[in-house]
Amino acid sequence: MKQPDDDIPGGVSEETLNAFVDDQLSAGERGDVFEAINRNRRLTERACELTHLRGMVQLAYRDCPKPKHLQPAPRHGNLLKGVAAAALLALGALLGWVVHPGPGGPGVLNETALASIARHDGSFLVSRVGAPVPAHGVRHVLLHLTSSNPQQMELALNRVQELMGLFPRDQLQVEVVTNAGGVNLLRANVSPYKARVEELMRKYPNLTFLACSNTVANLKRELGPGRVDLIPNTRVGPTAIHEIITRLQEGWIYIKV
């Protein structure tokens, strides 16, 4: 054991105390230091300080800054999530903008027809983008149904019929876009309103029903290809969101059930 320093109490040298803290002493030497520590409170404090310093050094170099090429690359999944979030944000901004009430005027289709369709109970949401729809000429209206609830389906069909009564056939084009549960309205063996849909199709040539291709593909995958029959003359278009955005850009009126 080294000779004690003047500033270290208890007859223990600074080097020995360091070796004690670092567990570098033999059993006999450790015993001597323990005895000295028991006798001298100041020595205990010094040992604690050394342990504390060692902990601080370990903490200081736990995470060292690294050059760029050593830093972990961002995961691909995060990039995809970012893109998806940006797309959702853009869609939200688009829909928020179209929901915002625009300036109305005498030649714009938003006082009578849409007011009669958009119910006060909030069951319908009416949106429009693009140029104002003229009072004369063809009006284009898109109804969007996503629910498999029969009441919602009936409500949608009622509104289609109401809409058809408001304008002459040559001045109105209506498209009912369904996805998710809403596709059930157009499934021949599932739809509770198959006959009514067929009747509407027959009666109004300016009315089309469209099923989301994604939903149909999912159903075929789940149930088998032969078990997803749609009502004849139903259009299986692109995805519902693609159809809605395209129609909105073309100036169609969007009505969400």
């Binding site: 080294k2 600074e14 360091n18 070796a19 670092d22 050394l50 310093l53 601080m56």
Partner: peptide, 13 residues
């Protein structure tokens, strides 16, 4: 090694 370590920790303290 022991003396360098001792001096280093004294300076850190």
């Amino acid at each position: 090694v022991m003396s360098r370590l001792s001096r280093a920790r004294r300076a850190l303290k």
